[in-house]
């Protein structure tokens, strides 16, 4: 019973959503289910937030390794929660938007969270460099092709590419590095991406059918046969 009810719900909802694509009177049912999902997700947030506090309070109390980080987490969590709930610093009364100009919540978001997020994002530049270094080593034929393609695209995106190959006559302009870079991106690269997309779409169809028909039930917490 614990597993059959979710399976039945999955089957009914799954079939309904598939059919709704073809039946105009129920075509917006997917959006309605999206709203239900959001409502459930809001309640689930209490579980998540509770778990966060439980874990980090535990670390602080036990003075576990790196408990100072947990302290920062807990202080940050409650600071944002209280400032947001009571709309501290927000102009006007309690009905004012929490993100209104001048509210402390907005100020903390703009001056604290945003710069921190940007800092993390900026790390990507260094990671791209180290990953490219490894990926572009010409270890075998495929890696060599990748290296050559990457070199052409990198060169094609800089003025140097045009400077080096701008002399090539117009009738052979495809061999100018910037044009070659565009061709690589628009033809072989796009063809490969589309092939992957077709595979993904078919994979989603097969996976959805397995879920709707109850063949795949691991996500419900295990499989009797498994």
């Amino acid at each position: 019973m614990r597993r059959n009810i979710p399976l039945a719900v999955t089957f009914v909802v799954g079939m309904l959503l598939i059919v709704s694509v073809f039946l105009p009177p129920i075509e917006t049912i997917g959006e309605d289910f999206g709203v239900f999902f959001s409502i459930i997700a809001v309640f689930a947030f209490f579980l998540g937030g509770g778990n966060l506090i439980k874990v980090h309070f535990g670390k602080i109390m036990k003075k576990s390794n790196d408990w100072e980080f947990s302290l920062v987490t807990v202080v940050g969590f409650f600071a944002m929660l209280i400032i947001g709930l009571f709309k501290i610093g927000a102009p006007g009364d309690i009905s004012t938007s929490v993100t209104a100009e001048g509210s402390y919540f907005q100020e903390m978001f703009v001056y604290l969270i945003n710069p921190l997020q940007s800092t993390m994002y900026a790390l990507l530049a260094f990671f791209v460099a180290s990953a490219s270094y490894r990926a572009f080593r010409a270890k075998n034929r495929e890696a060599t092709i990748l290296l050559v393609a990457a070199f052409i695209i990198l060169l094609g995106r800089t003025p140097l590419g045009m400077m080096l190959t701008g002399w090539i006559p117009e009738s052979f302009s495809i061999f100018q590095v910037p044009n070659l870079a565009v061709w690589i991106m628009n033809s072989p690269n796009l063809a490969g991406q589309r092939a992957i997309m077709i595979g993904i779409s078919l994979g989603v169809v097969a996976m959805s059918l397995r879920l709707i028909l109850g063949i795949e039930r691991t996500y419900l917490g295990g499989d009797d046969k498994g």
């Binding site: 992957i196 997309m197 994979g203 097969a206 397995r210 063949i215 795949e216 691991t218 499989d223």
Partner: peptide
């Protein structure tokens, strides 16, 4: 890559019905 993510569970289960999909 792509579809292999969706095929993984069926592949790992080894169940004929899942592999059929």
């Amino acid at each position: 890559i792509g579809e292999e993510l969706f095929a993984a569970s069926a592949y790992l289960s080894g169940e004929p019905m899942q592999l059929g999909s």
